[in-house]
């Protein structure tokens, strides 16, 4: 759910489908993978470009809140670990951009849409990372929530997306563990350090719950995406799973989830919990979160400042190729 509220096309009944669409749906129902260049409904292609693109943008923008702490990590070891983690996020973004490109969209188009605000990235990255404990909370909660969504997506119907997810999942659990490790250290530290950990949890709890997207009753795009197996679980299912997994982990740390109504529900075998403030979520998605302008500004600046370098390398490559060709001709 680095992809939230991905717009999908309307769901069709079997009677409304063309023979091609029927055959396509049957392949998906049989668990076959759809590969690039094979026939696919235009809506499937478009929805996937939006979803994979949004997912890729989230990985790339997601480097910024953590990059903020690389130069200020408390030890050299923590700095090296954080650097490796942020480098992984860049790699994950690249795997996903490549998967999106197999659907006929170019890298530059995707980036242009991010920079112009026409494509989104996850709402979570529009919150600031104020203390070192936030690095712990981000790894533990944000990567934890991401894993919850990404593990089932390994079985998604689109081959290149599925393969990207398999690679990502292999690497992602390091991210969550390093976050939890930071939290354990903070919680075993001075009372001030433990208070920092609690403060980080307080600020990241509800934004993490928002990562799964709006409640199922307000989620208008789910049905078709689930039929196409590009969404494997509903938002509420994943959110519930995340809460059930995270509460005992918070207890182990001796931290309190900032929700007075959080309570074990024996009957459903899960926790009852408070919904996040959805008006805040929609405001952040619409561009009015605490860091939207800063995040997008940093991305646009990096892209524009790097233009001369990208062009320079292309010019060098073209000249080197010309020289090689001339040398070959001279030798003949």
């Amino acid at each position: 759910m680095y992809a939230q509220m991905v717009k999908s096309e309307g769901s069709k009944s079997r009677e409304e489908m063309t023979p091609e669409e029927l055959a396509f749906q049957d392949r998906i129902d049989r668990g076959e993978k759809i590969e690039p260049k094979e026939w696919m409904p235009e809506g499937y292609r478009k929805t996937l470009i939006r979803q994979i693109g949004q997912h890729a943008h989230s990985e790339i923008v997601g480097q910024l809140p953590e990059g903020n702490w690389i130069t200020r990590a408390p030890t050299l070891e923590r700095k090296a670990i954080l650097l490796a983690k942020v480098q992984d996020e860049a790699g994950h973004g690249l795997y996903l951009y490549c998967a999106a490109e197999t659907l006929g969209v170019s890298r530059d188009e995707l980036l242009e849409k991010l920079h112009s605000g026409n494509m989104k990235y996850s709402s979570i990255f529009n919150y600031p990372t104020l203390t070192w404990a936030d690095m712990g909370a981000v790894g533990w909660l944000v990567d934890g929530a991401a894993i919850m969504n990404q593990v089932p997506l390994q079985r998604t119907s689109y081959g290149p997306y599925s393969r990207a997810m398999i690679r990502i999942c292999k690497e992602e659990s390091f991210h969550q563990r390093q976050g939890y490790d930071i939290m354990m250290k903070m919680c075993a530290g001075t009372p001030e350090q433990k208070a920092m950990a609690q403060d980080a949890l307080n600020r990241f709890w509800y934004p993490s719950l928002m990562m799964f997207g709006p409640s199922d009753k307000d989620s208008v795009h789910s049905a078709q995406s689930m039929a196409w197996k590009i969404k494997m679980n509903t938002n509420d299912e994943l959110r519930q799973k995340f809460v059930d997994q995270t509460v005992p982990q918070a207890e182990y740390l001796g931290l309190t989830i900032p929700d007075p109504d959080l309570k074990w529900n024996e009957e459903k075998g899960g926790y009852d919990f408070s919904e996040p403030d959805w008006s805040e979520f929609f405001a952040v998605i619409a561009g009015n979160g605490p860091c939207n302008a800063e995040r997008l500004g940093a991305r646009v600046k990096a892209w524009e400042d790097g233009a001369w370098f990208r062009d320079g390398l292309m010019a060098h490559a073209a000249k080197a190729e010309d020289r090689a060709r001339a040398a070959r001709l001279a030798a003949e």
Partner: peptide, 11 residues
């Protein structure tokens, strides 16, 4: 294993 963009083979 996948693909990537680069200006030339060495990069």
């Amino acid at each position: 294993v996948g693909s990537l963009h680069a200006p030339d083979a060495e990069m």
